[in-house]
């Protein structure tokens, strides 16, 4: 699905890099623990997380991710938005909690891309 569709499903707001919202994504990874993302993520283009700090953006960069979805209404700081913009990563904020955000996207066809 397109990033814009994922944002819509989650009633989310796209916070930056709207120009890339039509990019196609097929797999996602949900975690608040960045070390686990680094340990287990494979080719998931979307990171769903409740953690909100600059290291989330860095982690996504290391994993070549295209989009970060912040759950539970978390709003990244201007500093984080700047980091994401420079790297072309779409940031989305959704009021949904982790479990329901993952469930909604999974039901809509996004896969986990791992075990």
């Amino acid at each position: 699905m397109k990033i814009s569709e994922a944002a819509k499903i989650l009633e989310g707001t796209i916070l930056c890099c709207e120009e890339f919202q039509d990019k196609e994504v097929t797999a996602a990874c949900g975690s608040d623990m960045m070390s686990d993302v680094l340990a287990y993520a494979k080719d998931q283009a979307v990171l769903i997380t409740g953690l909100c700090n600059p290291q989330v953006i860095r982690t996504a960069v290391m994993m070549d991710m295209l989009c970060i979805i912040f759950v539970r209404g978390k709003k990244p700081t201007d500093e984080m938005i700047e980091l994401a913009k420079e790297r072309g990563i779409v940031l989305v904020s959704t009021p949904r909690r982790m479990f329901s955000a993952c469930g909604k996207l999974y039901s809509a066809g996004l896969v986990s891309g791992g075990y």
């Binding site: 070390s35 340990a39 700090n53 290291q55």
Partner: peptide, 13 residues
């Protein structure tokens, strides 16, 4: 830990 690290996965990774 609040930054999402400190899970003890650094060196193993």
């Amino acid at each position: 830990r609040a930054l999402g690290f400190g899970a003890g996965m650094g060196l193993p990774n």
